[in-house]
Design a protein around this nucleic acid. Sequence first.
DNA 1: AAAGGCAGCGCG
DNA 2: AAAGCGCGCTGCCTTT
Length: 653
Amino acid sequence: MKAANLEFNGKAFKRFYVTDLDEMVKCCHLLLDSKATRLGLDIETSKKIKFLNFVPVKKGNRTIGPAPGLCPLLSDIRLIQIFDPIQNAVYVFDAMKIPLWRNSCLFRSFLTERKFIAHNGVFEIKHFTHNSYPNMHIDCSMLLTILVDRAERSPFEPEEEDEDEPADGMAKYKKTGYGLDAVIGRLYGCRVEKAFQTSDWNRLELSKDQINYAALDAVLTYRVGRDMMEKVLEYKMLKAYTVLRDMQHVVADMELTGIAIDKKQHNSLIKEWEKQHAENTIECTKRFKKVNLNSSKQLNAWAKEKYPEAFWCRYWPKTKASTEENQILSFGKDTLKEVIDTIERRFKQRSNALLALLEYKKFGKLLSTYGETLAAITHPSTGRVHCSFIIGETRTGRLSSREPNLQNLPRDKSVRRLFIAPDAKHLLVADYSQIEIRTAAALSKDPVMTNAFIKGIDLHKYIVKMCFGWKMKDITKEQRQMGKAINFGYEFRMGWKKFARYALTSYGVKITDEQAKHTFDTYHSLYRVYSAWCEAEYRKCERLGFVRTPLGKIRKLLPEEQYTRSVNTQVQGGAAEAIMLALIYFRKEMPKGCKLISTIHDEIIVECDQQKPEYKDLLEKCMVKGFQDVFPEAPICGLVEASYGRTWADAKQ
DNA sequence: AAAGGCAGCGCG
DNA sequence: AAAGCGCGCTGCCTTT
């Protein structure tokens, strides 16, 4: 076996290209026997022959949805690159030349027994899971890097001075993002060539440059992982990291499984929306003529022409960017409603144009986001929607979701009904009840909040009772909504002025300044201990310059961020950590008939073969356990609500 | 032509 | 002195 001698950034390493069985056996033994605690890992993928001609969906100038080469269902593992830091050697296994997946006990034990480290481990885990290795130990140098970065940098950090540009005029390295090239640039100040990433990995004979590129990535991943792990330990974030590491498998499973869509229903819904939208557009062109209704600039011109300056100057809310000299009117839904209301009250007129505009916007948004775009990204081979879940990027520790974002679907039943269980399956949906208030109660040990949870008192009703003296049993749905606004607003240190506006625009409830102040005072005297805790946490954060979530994830905060985010990070982050533990527990224990589908901050969706009470009990048990791990002393009565249904809409009670 | 900022909207 | 938080997607508009 011939070794190539390579180097990066002044450090040399050997590279072996493994193309036959004897070589593979030898390398597997070497790697199994290596004294290294972790091995660097990277893979390159080729397109499955069947999908060679598959064209990913274009949206504007970029492609979205499933892509051969990225999606495990559309691609094969071509190369597996393993870096052994003890031998200082990379072994590049070529799956097109060796039958890696066919009953090779040696290769199997190598993959299952060793610990690896990869950059964006979810990618590797998805591919290995799809090839029947669902539980490999893979640390992620990207997750480690992000954790360290969040502890060391705030997004409001002033830009660092540009150093002298290199002679070739190219920027030295990317300042944003967590791709391996960007990370290497920021950590070690050197550039990595990434052009080969998209080269042709389907050809039987790979070029030397391709093989060397592939090998290098495994080395770099290892170096980043080793260095960042050291920092994570130094910052005492191992516990937080371990949760993220285990979440990789949950996310990989959910992304591979996807969620089924009712195509017929979707098509008829699109037709319905299009009809409505066409009618609204006609109605609007009558009143707005040639104005582009999606352009706030053109709408500004239109409004300033139509209404007297004295009116829009005084009564029309302005955007954030608006200045004294250049006033920019806001055209958001809430402000439009406000303006319509003002016109009606003060001038006894119906603003038909603005009312039509509201309707136009509503269906325009639905069509552009959940119309053909959604249909286009359903997977060609599964017919389901496979979104990506992103771990570790949000500043509190929540997951986020992309392509499509399944976490901000309209609550409207017509949309949620599109997400279904396929024939003979069922959806199990469970959510934490009032998780953020529970978390606040647990962190601060506020006795009033805690007692309410023990006794099962509805906190949203309770707060309006205390504010306005209404009787619990008489409180209407709308009044309870107001309670929600009070609880969520003041929990995260909103001021009474903003609350007054918030109540008006979001709930249409007009309250005077005096009343707003009263709700503020009532909240803070009722939850005295929580308020004091918030203040104490703020002081602590002021001293330290950062805040920690319950499991220890650090978020650096600049002084101007500290007042609100010191509290919010702990509450939201703690809730996120609880549900992540729940997901990890459930994945470990769930029976064959269950598949994790999705999670939305306080909610978990599972696809089941039957409506068995055992499944539901297990999910509830795991969610309780996850919560208790983070908040051992918190009450758990009424913590989880779960139910079955055929669609997402009707599985939620 | 591509990239980034902003406003606006949906969710928890 | 005063201070809700956390996301992603779409379309428009400006800059490169």
